[in-house]
Computed example of a mutant assay.
Amino acid sequence: MSTDAEQHQQTGGPDEAAQEWRRWHEERVLAVAAPYGPLALTGTHWLSDYPEGRIPAVPGQWREDGDAVVLTATAEDGIVVDGKPLTGEVRLGADSGPADDARVALGDRRLVVIRREGLWAVRDFDPDAPARHAFSTVDATPYDPAWVVPGTFRPYAEERDVRVANADGAERGLGLGGELAFTVDGDEHTLQVTVEEDGSLWAVFADATSGNGSYRFRFLRPGTPAGDGSLSVDFNRALLPPCAFADHFLCPFPPPGNTLTVPVAAGERNRLDA
């Protein structure tokens, strides 16, 4: 999802907003189905599980070394780093960009180095992944202007770190910078939100449709609040988390208090396969 889409604000009439949402949805489907989109992830391999440095189905030797991963390979391994065949050793930091920009390639595959809470892992993105070929579209509720509601961001005095379950079964920290308040059918609701480095907000939430008409939880990125904390909250752009497309993502589950009692019949609902 593009930054412009994430920071979308309602500026036109309902017809224009609906057309913009359709464009956003079409772009979102294309991004999901891209060669190195979330459907292409075939594995997340934690190096702590492989102390000998050998990852199944991934050539080379991978080992942790303080603030880096050391990758050792021979010409027979077929590994390319920064566009050049690797013969010998290279130190790798965590990849910060999209998978197709990863430093390490193996044919059409991209091997992405990540670090979470001090632990290193290698992600394997394969454009030929079965999930990518089976994918049809993202099922989403048609645009409804009623699900664009005014909101208010209330920052915490200090960021709070809570432990939440992740999609891979582990618990990890989730930083929360405040709460987002909004009204649905005359009742106020709140979501605890993360404040990103650029000031935009991100929420992990469930609602009365979760697991019953929509995926078990979703993401919401309402953009950046104004100086007074006000912003527009567009649930038409509720997102499926990456783990809805591949089992190897580490998506956090909603923190306590982020399960809405109302059904949010808006936004993305489920992945559909052909």
Rank of each mutant, 00 (worst) to 15 (best):
P51N: 05
L174R: 07
I114K: 07
R28W: 03
E197Y: 10
N212T: 10
T183Q: 08
T3K: 13
R218I: 01
A246S: 15
L240R: 00
E171N: 09
P51D: 04
G107N: 02
G267N: 10
P222F: 07
P85D: 05
A181C: 12
E196Y: 04
D65K: 08
A57I: 10
L47A: 01
D234W: 04
A34S: 15
D124A: 10
R154G: 06
A129D: 06
P85Q: 10
R216L: 12
A18H: 08
A75V: 14
V193A: 01
A167E: 13
R91V: 03
A18C: 10
E6T: 13
E158Q: 15
D247T: 13
R110D: 02
G186W: 04
R54Q: 14
G151N: 07
Q19R: 15
A265V: 09
G37Q: 03
E20T: 15
T261G: 14
A146D: 13
P130C: 04
P263V: 05
R54I: 14
F253G: 00
V58S: 07
P35I: 02
D144R: 08
V149P: 07
A5W: 15
H8P: 08
G169T: 12
T261L: 11
E52W: 08
H45W: 15
P56A: 05
D168F: 01
G78L: 13
V70Y: 05
F219Q: 01
G178T: 07
